[in-house]
């Protein structure tokens, strides 16, 4: 499968079956699952539920947030945006604030 189709924007190296296999510098590779296929795409910022992990070799990749009810995260364990209607406290998402914490409804924080 030499001579792959012209790569999509942001991609340095791609193939017909795997999509992008090496993104341009500073971008993140996201391994997008689409039914039985899984192809690489290059993004400037990662999709909902993922955060961008950079590394010195430039193999930056979108990595899954591991926090319940979280839409955007800073790292695996710290949420920056909870799902609608949930309160955030120290990077986690709560239906109601933990005991001893005051509720700030305007920013949905404890």
């Amino acid at each position: 499968t030499e001579g792959p189709p012209s790569c999509p924007k942001g991609c340095d190296r791609c193939s017909e079956y795997n999509g992008c296999v090496k993104c341009k510098p500073k971008l993140f590779i996201f391994l997008e699952r689409n039914d039985i296929r899984q192809v690489g795409v290059c993004l400037a910022s990662c999709p909902v539920g993922y955060f961008g992990m950079r590394n010195p070799e430039g193999n930056n990749r979108c990595t899954q947030c591991k926090i319940d009810n979280c839409e955007a995260c800073f790292n695996r364990n710290f949420c920056t945006k909870c799902k609608e209607g949930l309160y955030s406290h120290s990077g986690r998402c709560y239906v109601s604030c933990p005991p001893g914490q005051r509720t700030a409804n305007e920013t949905m924080e404890c």
């Binding site: 950079r54 590394n55 010195p56 800073f74 790292n75 710290f78 920056t80 120290s90 990077g91």
Partner: peptide
């Protein structure tokens, strides 16, 4: 501030 990265 709650989260900051100065990595790399």
């Amino acid at each position: 501030l709650q989260a900051m990265t100065l990595a790399l």
